[in-house]
């Protein structure tokens, strides 16, 4: 699905990732952990083509990210659902319209998908807030809406960047359950988080691989997690 081979990335002179090799196999569940500033978000951005590796190669759905044209990258992003840390909503559109945005930009008939859209909003528990604007939602509701938008296109891979960063324990468990459920449907999931409690809770529900990002490289985390 997504494969990094000796990938490196630098912001100016500061190398944040060095020789990172990682393979997200279909149906796998990964956690990416590490201290703040370790490069978790940068690594995720390499995984959906928002950044291009300075060294090494990154393959997105079998295609070298460097060789992708803008249009080809847009198509790849329709198959990789991303839950961004800051949600990235359009504040002038309702939650329903924001969730439907990937359908609209890919040229699909949003009206024809209205029932699926309603079911999805119900699944993430946002039916009563369907017509609210993003600034009117709580942190947990925003994260659930972001998850709904990430999966509306039925992607093969779901990447989540600190999805529980701004929510309470109960809500983070609810979000985790949704992601575990998606993984059980066959989706590949990668969650970047520094919330070790979340990882421990997940390991009780799903077979997850935990990767620790430190010093610019990725290691498999030990059994202490």
């Amino acid at each position: 699905m997504i494969e990094l081979h000796k990938a490196g990335y630098s912001y100016g002179q500061d190398a944040i990732l060095r020789d990172v090799s990682l393979q997200l196999a279909p149906g796998s569940f990964h956690f990416l952990t590490g201290p703040s500033g370790a490069g978790k978000s940068t690594l995720l951005k390499l995984c959906y083509g928002d950044l291009l590796a300075n060294t090494g190669t990154v393959k997105l759905l079998g295609q070298d990210a460097r060789d992708l044209s803008r249009d080809a990258l847009a198509k790849v992003r329709q198959r990789i659902g991303v839950v961004h840390q800051d949600c990235q909503f359009l504040d002038h559109l309702s939650i329903t319209q924001n969730v439907a945005l990937p359908l609209a930009v890919s040229g699909r008939d949003v009206e024809a998908e209205a029932e699926n859209l309603a079911q999805l909003l119900a699944w993430v528990g946002l039916s009563p807030r369907a017509h609210a604007l993003p600034p009117e939602l709580s942190g947990g509701e925003r994260q659930r809406a972001a998850l709904a938008r990430a999966i509306i296109m039925g992607p093969d891979v779901i990447l989540a960047d600190e999805p529980t960063g701004n929510v309470d324990w109960e809500m983070s468990q609810r979000l985790l359950s949704l992601l575990v459920e998606l993984n059980k449907m066959g989706k590949t999931v990668l969650i970047a988080t520094h919330d070790l409690g979340l990882i421990r809770a997940a390991k009780a529900q799903v077979s997850a691989r935990v990767l620790r990002l430190a010093g610019g490289s990725v290691q498999l985390a030990g059994a202490d997690l």
């Binding site: 992003r77 991303v82 961004h84 990235q88 945005l101 930009v105 296109m153």
Partner: peptide, 15 residues
Amino acid sequence: GVIRTLRLVGARDSY
């Protein structure tokens, strides 16, 4: 900002 969000959800430049 709007353009960045649209690109992240898979919008092509022509759209």
